[in-house]
């Protein structure tokens, strides 16, 4: 098979993902409303309680809304990555996974195409959120919006491949609701998305350590610095490594259990 055949295949997979996204407008709507609620309601109430001192990458005192914006961008990526893997579980039940697997192209390529397609759709949602946040008054440097893009894409890939690993491990659709509770919420709350890690340190060394090793924390920090035109090296390496690891595990576990759900 030629490279052009692989390109056509990728375009087909991402086109389908895009069409699904456009058709399911409620999904887009809820993906936007969720972080906006956090931004407008939660942050407004919380800013009075939580003072944020000057810390990198910010060069001045910042309102709490500004602090949680990168975390909320990643929240969109997290929900979408998990929802993407949910759709793959659903696909497997509904048989359209069979259609994907009947392709003569290599299977790791097919899966990774799917993951990349899901991630690209997520990016569109993040920028829709950032546009509304801009209008609301959260204004990172304009160039920061551009430098954040590769960071967001990497984090999206990391979370979607993690989602795929989970989807491979979970056979029944019913169990996925549990994953939402046991994966999404812990990842989100035990991270630097809502409060800086040093605040966590005050809360307890245990929570702090969990948060410091949470992949989601590295994702949020990568995006936070990128949004202010800075490169955070350690989070970048973490995210690259974890994406590679999750991708590898996702592809191999998928191969092992080929044909399940027949």
């Amino acid at each position: 098979m030629s490279a052009i055949a692989y390109l056509h295949c990728f375009l087909g997979v991402s086109g389908r993902e895009w069409r699904r996204f456009v058709q399911q407008r409620t999904r887009f709507f809820s993906a936007l409303v969720r972080p906006l609620l956090w931004l407008v309601v939660f942050a407004a109430g919380f800013r009075a309680v939580l003072g944020i001192s000057i810390m990198a990458p910010y060069d001045t005192y910042i309102p709490y809304e500004v602090y949680i914006t990168p975390g909320l961008c990643c929240m969109i990526l997290l929900f979408n990555g998990m929802q993407g893997s949910l759709s793959m579980v659903y696909d497997r039940e509904m048989g359209s996974m069979k259609v994907l697997l009947m392709s003569p192209l290599s299977r790791p390529f097919l899966l990774l195409s799917k993951v990349l397609a899901i991630s690209l759709v997520s990016l569109v949602q993040v920028y829709a959120f950032l546009a509304i946040a801009w209008w609301y008054g959260i204004r990172p440097p304009a160039w920061g919006l551009a430098t954040a893009m590769p960071a967001l894409l990497l984090v999206a890939l990391m979370l979607s491949t993690l989602g795929l690993v989970l989807a491979n491990a979970i056979r029944q659709l019913e169990n996925f609701a549990g994953v939402m509770n046991f994966v999404i919420f812990p990842l989100f709350f035990l991270s630097s998305a809502l409060y800086p890690l040093w605040k966590m340190q005050e809360a307890g060394p245990w929570l702090y350590r969990l948060s410091a090793y949470n992949p989601f924390t590295h994702g949020v920090e990568l995006v936070r610095f990128a949004l202010y035109e800075q490169l955070a090296m350690a989070p970048l390496l973490w995210c690259l490594g974890l994406t590679g690891l999750f991708g590898l595990v996702a592809v191999t576990t998928f191969n092992l259990q080929r044909g399940q759900g027949l």
């Binding site: 052009i4 389908r16 359209s96 069979k98």
Partner: peptide
């Protein structure tokens, strides 16, 4: 191989043509 599975595997929310084009793309056709 061309396969028609026992359980239907069409995407109900796509049009007839979109289903075909998706399959063609998976087979690397332009």
């Amino acid at each position: 191989l061309g396969v028609v599975f026992q359980q239907p595997t069409l995407d109900l929310d796509l049009s007839v043509r979109q289903n075909l084009l998706y399959h063609a793309a998976l087979h690397g056709l332009g």
